[in-house]
Amino acid sequence: MSNAKAVSDASFKADVLDSEKTILVDFWAEWCGPCRAVAPILDQIAAEHGDKIEIVKLNVDDNPETAMKYQITSIPALKVYKGGEVVKTIIGAKPKAALESDLAAFI
């Protein structure tokens, strides 16, 4: 899985919603093949654009409350949070160029 910091139901408010930074949350699970595929790409994006966007991951198996709250029905789901609000949702694993273009407004 990606090297991103793991957030949880318990820490979601402090780590994501109350953060001053723009945060991308990678909703993932162990059993999800496309999640594994996209993880190294997210690591690359974090390395290159870490000054503008912080990438964290949330395991949906271990944190059903947050997954349910944000109506996750398909993973990987990448949600960008700014000031506690979801400002962008990306569904499914995509190549780096496609993700960068989806995230162009934030990186």
């Binding site: 699970a29 059993w31 999800c32 093949g33 496309p34 949906v60 198996d61 997954a67 109506q71 996750i72 029905t73 398909s74 993973i75 789901a77 949702t89 569904i91 499914g92």
Partner: peptide, 16 residues
Amino acid sequence: SGRGVSWCATCDGFFF
């Protein structure tokens, strides 16, 4: 899509 429409049961079945 991603809001109930899916092409991958093994990826998304868990949420149903």
